[in-house]
Amino acid sequence: MLGDIAFLLYVGHLIADFPLQTDHQAGHKALPGVAGWRANISHAATHVAVCATLLVLGAAVLGWSLPALPALTALLWIGVTHAVIDRRWPVAAWMRLARQSTWAANGGAAHVDQTAHIAALLVAALFLAA
Rank of each mutant, 00 (worst) to 15 (best):
G108T: 09
R87W: 07
A105G: 07
L69M: 15
W37Y: 12
F18M: 07
I85L: 07
M95I: 10
A124E: 08
A16F: 10
L20F: 15
L72N: 12
L9C: 09
L66C: 08
S65M: 00
T53L: 15
T115C: 12
V61R: 06
L57C: 14
L72S: 14
I78A: 00
I41K: 02
L66A: 07
A59F: 05
H111G: 12
T81S: 13
H82V: 02
S42A: 07
V50L: 08
L9K: 05
G12N: 04
A109C: 01
N106P: 00
V50E: 08
L69T: 15
L72D: 13
L2D: 05
T46F: 03
T53R: 00
A92S: 06
D86W: 04
H111I: 14
A116C: 14
P19E: 09
A35C: 02
L2R: 04
G107E: 06
A71S: 15
A68G: 04
D17V: 11
A125Q: 06
A44Q: 04
W89R: 14
L126V: 14
Q21M: 07
W64K: 02
A93T: 10
L72G: 14
L66S: 09
F127W: 14
N40Y: 11
P32H: 12
V48F: 01
V50H: 08
W89S: 15
T115W: 12
N40P: 03
V84H: 01
A92Y: 02
R38Q: 14
L54F: 14
A52Q: 01
